[in-house]
């Protein structure tokens, strides 16, 4: 473990908590893409299949359970409890356009052709594009609540910090994983225009408005 990866995990945990708090305290999931949340739940499910078979550390197991529980709790809040506030009309991204290519690529480019490894690779490719429905929804509505932009900033920062972690691990222990690293770069690049808007607008107290 290094401070970059710990920082990344904490940013990820913060994002998940911000989202749950936003939905719970405002009793509304307006502006949140349920489709992205479905992709995140799918990502954690495919990635943590070895939760009970491959013990790494208490921290690792606890975080996996927290991520899985939070992902499914968010789906419950969005599609059951506060279903009436879910904005179907603006959350229209076709999930099959993301799931099928990620699954196909995972069967072709992976570290090892085994169930666990292919599912892990699928989760890596899927996570890279999982935020697209959310970013698409923000571009369609043209704006986002500030709490939602804090959520996106924390979520985007998590994988950016993981990239720093991979660079650090390459130079400190010669470790590298081209699949996770390249997918992580794609994932982080998708946030770039949002990061720009967040830093130039939201941090100055303005609302996040996308140029129409």
């Amino acid at each position: 473990m290094n401070i970059f990866r710990l920082g990344g995990d904490l940013a990820h945990l913060l994002a998940i908590i911000i989202l749950l708090l936003k939905i719970w305290t405002t009793r509304s999931c307006a502006g949140i893409s349920g489709k992205s949340q479905i992709l995140f739940a799918l990502t954690f499910t495919a990635r943590y299949l070895d939760l009970f078979t491959n013990f790494v550390s208490v921290y690792n197991s606890v975080m996996k359970v927290v991520y899985l529980a939070a992902a499914y709790a968010t789906l419950y809040l969005m599609y059951v409890k506060f279903k009436a506030t879910y904005d179907h009309n603006h959350d229209t991204f076709r999930l099959e356009f993301l799931i099928l290519p990620a699954a196909g690529l995972a069967l072709i480019i992976n570290h090892e052709f085994s169930i666990i490894e292919v599912m892990w690779t699928f989760s890596i490719y899927l996570e890279a594009v999982a935020i697209l429905p959310q970013l698409f929804m923000v571009s369609k509505t043209g704006e986002a609540e500030s709490i939602t932009s804090h959520y996106l900033f924390a979520l985007g920062s998590y994988r950016a910090l993981y990239i720093v972690n991979w660079v650090y691990r390459y130079y400190s222990e010669g470790f590298y994983d081209m699949i996770a690293t390249l997918a992580g770069v794609v994932q982080t690049v998708l946030y770039c225009d949002f990061f720009y808007l967040y830093i130039t607008k939201v941090l100055k107290g303005k609302k996040l408005q996308l140029p129409a």
Partner: peptide
């Protein structure tokens, strides 16, 4: 050449 998966990462 693709390296290998980090089993300790989330």
């Amino acid at each position: 050449e693709l390296g290998f998966r980090a089993k300790d990462e989330l």
